[in-house]
Amino acid sequence: MKRDIEYYLRREAFPHIWCAGCGNGIVLGAILRAIDDLQWDKNEIAMISGIGCSSRITGYVDFCTMNTTHGRALPFATGIKMANPEMKVIVVMGDGDCSAIGGNHFIHAARRNIDLTAIIVNNMIYGMTGGQYSPLTPSGRFGTTAPYGNIDQSFDLVKLATAAGASYVARGTVYHIRPLISLIKKAFNKKGFSVVEIISDCPISYGKMNRMQSAPEMLKWIRDSAVSSKVWENLSEEEKKDKYVIGEFLDVEKPEYTELYAMVVERAQKLEVGK
């Protein structure tokens, strides 16, 4: 049975704090529609976030929620999942949160292949602090701390998560909304560490520094810079700059961490551990 989205919201916390047109609300909607499609019980869901605009997501949903410290959402979530493997644990992070201060936690959660879903809202900027460049700001773009253009290379989270050992890796956008809901749903259903990077818009902090004045303008840019794998493969390196390949990149079956630990418990209880 389909439910109104409001069933999943803490109504008293609305309207939310995000700026007009911010992609965080679109991402939240996509997550809730995926949950609704799966008919998950609200009591079984733990949603954990770090610090940043997108991390405020957890305050708005009627689940077991935690708005933790900057970059640390994944280890908090790891503790919850280990203590109670029955819980469905969703982690929402921003690009700076996940890939800068939380970068080490991200690769290690993937390495363990623990059954969590990491959703990264990539608006390519530190929005809450006013528009500083992040590890996912493309080279050449502008931020308040890159006033002459960003000279850093940006991470490719899809490649990073794949190399680090995740089970499911996808990238979507807030413009391509129906495919996004499907990607999130698949990630939720995956046993193991699943990652969905979502290209999102920050019209205030990123848009204004990069010649996009409004949310619709940013969404058009996202629409026009997203390409499928097939198109991507035929692009030159020069053409790939400022483009994003979207879709599913990894979907494999392998041993999951809490299941492996259950085997450790079994082994420990069977063996006589000597002095």
């Binding site: 733990a46 954990i48 935690m66 933790t68 410290t69 640390r72 994944l74 280890p75 908090f76 979530a77 790891t78 503790g79 919850i80 999942k81 280990m82 203590a83 109670n84 819980m87 080490n104 936690h105 290690h108 630990y261 450790v264 418990v265 082994r267 420990a268 209880q269 551990v273």
Partner: peptide
């Protein structure tokens, strides 16, 4: 594990503290 408990070696001290808090919240 012999008592059915859980042990985790985390990637760093910060993560260890976070995991401990998460596990406590989960009971």
């Amino acid at each position: 594990p012999r008592l059915g408990g859980k042990f985790l070696q985390m990637e760093d001290e910060i993560a260890s503290m976070a995991a401990v808090i998460g596990a406590s919240i989960a009971g």
